[in-house]
């Protein structure tokens, strides 16, 4: 049954990916400005520009170019960056893990802070603890991630300098041998706890800055869903049968409220990818979101298409994961889909 859901979601995702690829392919090319001219600079001669255009098939009709792109893509080739002159896949492989590491840790912080804050707020609804929880959540929601980045840098990197504010590692710390590209994992695999701590130390501020917005959203949603659940007869039943209050907060009211929250949690998680770029900019984090903005500004065609496709794929995978999780934890969906 899980497989059936997975299959249908994958099918839909493939169609979305094809649509996105056509769209971004066309948009990147119809934007004004000659990518070859931008790449070569103002001093290049007209012949040099023409040669580069011919080399990259920029003068072919769009459908033909797309066809060439798809053909190349079918053996894993995303084309070549006009700037770095490296294959786009190499660039992405270099920058993507940094972003994923940031986003995954950020997502964990978002869920691990947002869910309990919402649940505790709901349990103490109307009282002082609730007011504090709501204030924290509201601050999280209404302040953009890059502002959090600057605030955290000022407070914890400058006035009270306990965290580094730039990069993924200290200059003196050797980069762990690449296995996953996640420094946290690679350093552990290499057996270097010092590097792990350094990577974690660098990761905390950007991850928290990125997480706070989604954290607020998750906390608010958890709170309101749980307050609704607290009005249900089954919570009164749990109280009437002497279930301990803590068990009710953490289980008998939380789980029914978590089911609708999970969908939004997943969307917020995916949205971190998009929000990551300003945080990456603020913290000098060598990630893919920053790379994506850079290549768009330079009109680096293949790199734009490659980056957008990878980010779209990450979004879709995230959505599939959330769909599967919702199916798994909601007994109604799980059991009804078993029937057919």
């Amino acid at each position: 049954m899980i497989w059936k859901t997975l299959y249908s979601r994958l099918k839909a995702s493939l169609i979305v990916m094809i649509g996105i690829s056509i769209l971004i392919f066309a948009v990147a090319r119809v934007m004004p400005g000659d990518p070859a001219r931008i790449a070569l600079g103002a001093n290049a001669s007209a012949e040099q520009v023409a040669a580069l255009r011919a080399d990259r098939h920029l003068d072919d009709p769009l459908p033909l170019q797309y066809w060439e792109f798809v053909k190349a893509l079918s053996h894993g080739d995303l084309g070549k960056s006009l700037f770095t002159n490296r294959p786009v896949s190499t660039d992405i492989a270099q920058f993507l893990p940094a972003t994923l590491e940031l986003v995954v840790v950020s997502g964990l912080i978002m869920a691990l802070l947002g869910l309990p804050i919402g649940a505790i707020s709901a349990h103490f609804r109307g009282r002082a603890i609730d007011q504090i929880g709501r204030l924290v959540a509201l601050l999280g929601v209404c302040t953009p991630a890059f502002v959090w980045g600057v605030i955290l840098q000022l407070l914890l990197g400058y006035f009270w300098p306990i965290f580094p504010i730039q990069g993924r590692l200290m200059d003196a710390t050797p980069v762990p041998p690449t296995v996953t590209g996640f420094y946290l994992l690679d350093s552990l695999i290499a057996g270097e706890p010092g590097t792990f701590l350094d990577a974690l130390h660098h990761l905390i501020l950007p991850a928290v800055a990125l997480a706070l917005g989604g954290m607020g959203q998750v906390a608010r949603l958890t709170r309101s869903n749980m307050i609704e659940v607290y009005g249900k007869p089954y919570v009164e039943m749990a109280e009437a049968y002497g279930f301990r209050p803590w068990r009710i907060v953490s289980r008998y009211a939380f789980v029914p409220a978590f089911i609708p929250t999970l969908t939004i949690l997943g969307l917020e998680f995916a949205a971190l990818l998009g929000n990551a770029f300003l945080v990456e900019k603020v913290f000098g984090w060598p990630g893919l979101s920053r790379y994506g903005v850079d290549v768009i500004l330079r009109k680096d065609l293949d790199a734009i298409v490659g980056t957008v496709l990878i980010i779209a794929a990450a979004f879709l995978i995230m959505n599939i994961v959330v769909d599967l999780l919702v199916t798994l934890i909601n007994p109604r969906i799980r059991l009804s889909s078993r029937r057919d």
Partner: peptide
């Protein structure tokens, strides 16, 4: 409705 829908 007095029994929790999320648990057996």
């Amino acid at each position: 409705s007095a029994l929790n829908p999320a648990f057996r």
